[in-house]
């Protein structure tokens, strides 16, 4: 277990706000540009960076992230590139996480991945398709390297399931706001608040809500009941829509600023 995420969440709480977690895939639009964009997010008030590890079959992701990871893969983004990106981020001011589907981690070697991530300054990994039943070797490897294991709960999760998930989780619990894939939505799923309420009774870990949060107003709404707000596709959209890197940086800075304002209670 890493202390870094605990510090981030307690810092946010003492400032009377939710923690803001921002996602971008490493290597999109290029490795160097993704470092610049993610550090821009930190400058603008993002507390934790979720570095996406591009994967060929991202079956939990909607159109925007699919597009971005396909571009990153086409540009030669490997697991080593992702770890290099992590090492270049501002780990002083933000907690650094990796979001990865399971196969690339298994292929890299679970112990090797945990060790190299810790060496790069990373403090946690979000694994959207790893169930607690399959997480035995991963839990052992991450414990040894003080890397947090972040698992998801969903509106369809029974209390019994939530208990099984939080038993394997550390750092925080990722509550999926809606039944569906990643992508900006007009409204945050109505299932999010009841899910957070249920999960709170079953764990002392901070709970962050993701999927479908894209605006300051939505961030404010979620910050009303959750400890953290996770935004991904909206950042990718900013970059897709921008004509060049400096415009993308400006757009990302603007959105991160709006969200950082939104999470204040």
């Amino acid at each position: 277990m890493s202390r870094r995420l605990a510090e981030i969440f307690s810092r946010a709480k003492s400032n009377n706000r939710a923690a803001l977690i921002g996602y971008l895939p490493a290597g999109y639009p290029t490795a160097a540009a993704s470092v610049e964009l993610m550090n821009t997010m930190v400058d603008a008030g993002v507390d934790a960076i979720e570095v996406g590890l591009p994967y060929s079959d991202p079956l939990m992701d909607g159109a925007d992230i699919q597009f971005a990871v396909a571009a990153a893969l086409a540009g030669g983004t490997t697991t080593d590139v992702v770890l290099d990106v992590v090492s270049r981020l501002d780990g002083e001011r933000a907690a650094l996480l990796v979001m990865s589907y399971w196969n690339p981690i298994e292929r890299y070697g679970v112990a090797r991945f945990a060790a190299r991530l810790a060496a790069a300054g990373g403090s946690g990994v979000i694994t959207p398709d790893l169930t607690p039943e399959e997480a035995g070797p991963w839990s052992a490897a991450t414990l040894a390297h003080e890397v947090d294991t972040i698992f998801l709960v969903a509106p369809s999760s029974t209390d019994e399931r939530i208990k099984a998930v939080v038993a394997k989780a550390s750092g925080f619990v990722y509550a999926a706001s809606t039944m569906g894939v990643t992508g900006a939505r007009r409204q945050v799923g109505a299932g999010a608040e009841p899910l957070v309420t249920r999960a709170r009774r079953l764990t002392d870990l901070p709970i962050a809500v993701g999927l479908g949060v894209s605006t300051g107003a939505q961030a404010r709404e979620v910050a009303g009941y959750a400890d953290g707000v996770i935004v991904g596709s909206a950042f990718v959209r900013c970059i897709r829509a921008a004509p060049d890197l400096s415009a993308a940086i400006a757009a990302v800075r603007g959105l991160a600023g709006e969200l950082a304002e939104g999470v204040r209670r």
Partner: peptide, 20 residues
Amino acid sequence: TAGHFGPYGGRFVPEALTAA
């Protein structure tokens, strides 16, 4: 046992699908 064939099989899915 339990959805496995030796080391193979299992369930590697988003939590949202577990209930289904």
